[in-house]
């Protein structure tokens, strides 16, 4: 699997993501700076987490208008898998690649802890490493992960299997509608999620539940 990681100023989870992709795919991802206009020919493009542009205006708003996002949009349209984690999810939403909005956590607090995630749709390139309905551990670390969309959009997401992950066992950390933790676009080649699977891939992390997301993607392109 060839992958690329898009880097914006203010991200801080890019190195974790690069380490995870390198370890699981056996190949270091290309890193693409936000001012670049082109993304190399890859099977997976990842936008990692952090605080791009200091979360100014709205989380992900400035990054979503960077030059590189036109290239991300073109790659998404051509069917390349795009993964956005945490701030990366916020950026994909602000860029219009995923519907809805991510609002301030209901508690108004930054939440950094482990949650339980239910795999709500295991029939995608991102989730095929899991079984349908499987509950996994995953860490979250965010202030604005409270997923919101109008009821029509929520119905569409639910009916089309576009909810990939849901907070399970009463661990919803942010008040998101229907416990939504991660969503897909209609073509299911763009996934955004608030939790950090890249931070749970080896025993030293305290578990390896995040690993199957990356190894599932690897299976597709191997």
């Amino acid at each position: 699997m060839k992958s690329a990681v898009i880097v914006f100023p203010g991200l801080n989870r890019d190195r974790d993501m690069i380490a995870a992709l390198t370890q699981i795919s056996g190949k270091a991802p290309a890193t693409v700076w936000h001012q670049d206009a082109e993304i190399p020919d890859v099977d997976l493009i990842v936008i990692p987490g952090g605080f791009s542009y200091g979360d100014y205006l709205r989380c992900g708003a400035i990054a979503a208008r960077s030059p590189i996002m036109d290239a991300v949009r073109a790659k998404a349209a051509s069917g390349v898998n795009i993964l956005g984690v945490c701030n990366g999810f916020q950026i994909l939403i602000e860029a219009g690649l995923l519907p809805g909005a991510l609002m301030r956590n209901m508690s108004l607090k930054f939440v950094c802890r482990d949650v339980k995630l239910e795999v709500t749709n295991a029939d995608t390139d991102f989730t095929r490493g899991y079984s349908q309905g499987q509950v996994i551990n995953c860490p979250v670390a965010h202030h604005d992960g409270n997923y919101f969309a109008d009821s029509e959009t929520i119905t569409q997401l639910e009916d089309n299997g576009q909810v990939a992950f849901r907070y399970a066992e009463n661990t919803n950390p942010n008040g998101s509608i229907n416990d939504i933790a991660g969503i897909l676009n209609t073509k299911k080649n763009v996934l955004g999620l608030m939790p950090h699977p890249e931070n749970l891939i080896e025993a030293a992390h305290g578990g390896t539940d995040g690993r199957a997301l990356f190894s599932g993607l690897l299976g597709r392109a191997a």
Partner: peptide
């Protein structure tokens, strides 16, 4: 429309 407001919310 393009930046200052997120018209979803």
């Amino acid at each position: 429309e393009k930046l200052l407001a997120n018209t979803v919310i």
